[in-house]
């Protein structure tokens, strides 16, 4: 299948098993909400799918190709070219401007920042981030920061988009903007996986997966 597959994944933190033999499919063109109680491994599963953690057993399969056993450099290339990430706390670079944060991944994809500037401004306009682009993350609201993080994730129009509690710090209006953006992105054929505690967000997704 196209999309992302978790095949019999196991993972432990310091000897404590978090996931054991977990399997799931995330088809292309769909949004999937991963829900469940805290500490049950939702974020861990997301980071395993995002090739940021190495499973103790099992395999992550991207478009039919096993990828979790690839060398680190190959996984970094996949993260740069095929993945977009939205982290729970936005994880912006506080020392750089808003526009530089949106353009950050250009370097990792071997593109000049100027080549993606127009796209970065389009995304900031689309998500209504009405702040001077040279302002830094510390000078904008939490909701704006999360939308900047979403712009960064969407900059490369990635086939896989993983979001960890993307609306956790947002009001209802901002949450709707983010979820609309994730659904729109899935509509382009991308695989979108969202970790959330929010029933509204889960309801807004095509599929729901409890962990």
């Amino acid at each position: 299948m196209t999309g992302l597959t978790a095949s019999d994944l196991s993972f432990s933190y310091g000897g404590t098993p978090i996931l054991q033999g977990w399997s799931a499919e995330f088809p292309a063109g769909s949004t999937t909400a991963m829900t469940g109680r805290s500490g049950h491994g939702k974020s861990t599963a997301l980071y395993l799918l995002g090739l940021m953690l190495q499973p103790a057993a099992g395999e992550v399969i991207l478009d039919g190709v096993p990828v979790s056993g690839l060398p680190d450099a190959a996984k970094a290339r996949l993260r740069a070219h095929h993945y977009g990430f939205v982290f729970q706390d936005a994880a912006l670079d506080p020392t750089r401007t808003v526009i530089d944060n949106v353009r950050e991944t250009a370097l990792y994809r071997g593109l000049h920042r100027k080549a993606v500037t127009t796209r970065a401004h389009e995304l900031l306009d689309r998500f209504d981030v009405v702040v001077p682009p040279h302002r830094r993350p510390g000078q904008i609201s939490g909701g704006q920061a999360q939308r900047v993080a979403l712009c960064r994730a969407l900059l490369s129009e990635p086939p896989i988009l993983l979001a960890d509690e993307p609306t956790g710090n947002l009001d209802a209006a901002s949450s709707r903007v983010v979820m609309d953006a994730l659904r729109d992105h899935a509509a382009t054929g991308a695989t979108v996986v969202v970790v959330t505690h929010s029933l509204e967000v889960a309801d807004a997704c095509d599929r729901r997966l409890a962990l």
């Binding site: 940021m52 970094a76 290339r77 740069a80 670079d93 370097l107 990792y108």
Partner: peptide, 16 residues
């Protein structure tokens, strides 16, 4: 550490 963690998560290789 957080800066390098973010860069690595977003696709920066170890060499970079």
């Amino acid at each position: 550490r957080r800066d390098f963690g973010r860069r690595r998560a977003l696709g920066a290789s170890r060499n970079l």
